[in-house]
Amino acid sequence: MTSVERREVHLTIPVAPEMEIAATAQVAALGEWMEMSRDKIDEVKMAVVEACINAFEHSATPDRKVELSFRVEAEEGGRGAYLEVDVADSGHGFDPTRLKTPEIAAALRSSRKRGWGIKIIESLMDDVRIESSEHGTRIVMRKYR
């Protein structure tokens, strides 16, 4: 496939154990359809898992749901086809500028070993945007084919 036909899928998952795995099935289906490499599909799956468990654990979303949108599109004259995933909750939000970057040396010396999700997402995806307010958080992640 040289060009790409636009496709969009929406999925709502409950805040419940292992529901993030249900979201990765959409990544696999769309990634294979757009002929993304297996390794890149796995990287998007990992990022989606991290975004979902962040929402599950930290958002305190009152409706106990996380909304996902998966889009296959292409930049005209740009970097070509991409898979973009939005992961949104209606929880209390957070200030992304106040996130501390975790360090393994510090984690090994302290009782706090968590907090890696955003670092992993930003490292595995090509573009990441975080929109957060007291009405919720939306993480928009893009991976080019």
Binding site: E20, M46, E50, A107, K113, W116, G117
Partner: peptide, 20 residues
């Protein structure tokens, strides 16, 4: 194992800490 998450990896870091 084809998939992991950061919570699982944080537990592996705990194991590593105890081993070290």
């Amino acid at each position: 194992t084809k998939i992991v998450n950061s919570i699982g990896i944080s537990i592996l870091i705990e194991i590593l800490e105890k081993l070290l």
